[in-house]
Design a protein around this nucleic acid. Structure first.
Lengths: 221, 221
DNA sequence: GTCTATAATACGATAGAC
DNA sequence: GTCTATCGTATTATAGAC
């Protein structure tokens, strides 16, 4: 299985491309994102990707030599986007500010790139066959680094004692949920298919959860 | 697309089954759960299900008339399991107790039925083609009912002002994350493939998050 | 109930004309 | 660069023997 890392781009392979090449590759990747994010790698078909891209199947395979190469291209692009919000967490800010703005960045990323989020989710559910190496190396390293920042705040009493890595899991899951399970969110809230107005409420909810206090101390009347 | 509800079982159709029938159906459903939960409906193949069940493909199709019928059987079984923890929330308990035990039930469900959780997640990512009706009717109704309980607590000042339905989303996402993204959790924590020891830490994290206070009030030195 | 054989279609990928 | 035609395999499902 071809494994991908966030910085596996080889500039030497990149020959100068014509305008039409760039346009077609973009069309294909956009269509493939649509199909892969909905059905996963195995569930996606070149027929559907080609149809979505309004392109013949052989023409599509003129730009990417096979199905896996398209998938790899999408995942590679994704990984940088994925790590960006986490990288920005700084040890120098206030815990509430840093965590708050991280949550807002992740929610914004979820709102702006729901298909990318579902592509990632599909890869996870399948057991991460393509990005297992990335998770074990680059992601783990970045998480360890940021977890150390959180641990510092805990030691200083500026953050409640908790496992920092699980705090990150909680932030990831709650924010990505709005992209990955958007169908359920919309159905439960009674919204129309395209409606993503729930993101306003999501910000509010997650700020209360992570920065405020959900259950007040029992009153001692 | 065949739609499913949580109570769509028709007892009249259920003829008495021999022991071997029950055993084989169970074997098939167990194998199918394994395959569907990993690759989704479209990504799953009867070949893999049959191989996993150690059964020939035609024999498998002797028990279920096609691929979709197996999938429907799994989802139908799933939905009751899925709603059970939510149904138990009572308006008469303390908010902290009710929410706390709901989180523990959901985490336990995630730990005990990770493949069922991933089956559900795959269905969500695909746009809920089979259980859209369930989400809009039964789930929405139950959520509205339980959200009203939360709202009552909010009105009484026993719960912070928030959208109760988004509070449920937060509980669902954080708890299911440990099943759906278990590969990532294990890789980031540096655990072995089968290791699910992180559930101990998860309980602790989520209790701090939902019942405690993550970021203490700024000290006014 | 289980099997082998196979029909019928879906799918990934290539050949070769233009 | 794009197309039609097509090959080989995978996949769903059925027929019919045992």
């Amino acid at each position: 299985m071809t494994q991908i890392s966030a910085s596996s781009e080889n500039p030497a392979e990149r020959r100068s491309k014509t305008r039409i090449q760039k346009e077609n590759e973009t069309r294909i990747l956009l269509a493939a994102l649509e199909v892969f994010s909905e059905n996963g790698f195995r569930g996606a078909t070149l027929d559907r990707i080609a149809a979505t891209a309004k392109m013949s199947k052989p023409n599509l395979l003129y730009y990417f030599k096979n199905k896996e190469e398209i998938h790899v291209a999408l995942l590679t692009d994704l990984l940088d986007v994925w790590l960006a919000p986490l990288r920005e967490i700084s040890p120098h800010g206030e815990p509430a500010d840093e965590i708050g703005s991280y949550i807002r960045r992740k929610l914004e990323s979820s709102r702006q790139f729901p298909r990318e989020s579902r592509l990632f989710a599909n890869e996870m559910l399948a057991g991460a066959p393509h990005i297992g190496d990335f998770l074990q190396s680059e992601l783990k390293q970045l998480v360890d680094e940021k977890a150390a920042i959180f641990q510092g705040w805990i030691d200083e009493g500026r953050l409640a004692p908790c496992d920092p890595r699980h705090l990150l899991f909680a932030i990831w899951s709650t924010t990505q949920h709005y992209a990955d399970f958007s169908v359920q969110v919309r159905h439960v809230l009674g919204l129309q298919p395209g409606d993503v107005s729930y993101y306003e409420e999501a910000v509010s909810m997650l700020e209360t959860l992570f920065l405020g206090r959900l259950v007040p101390p029992a009153s001692t009347d």
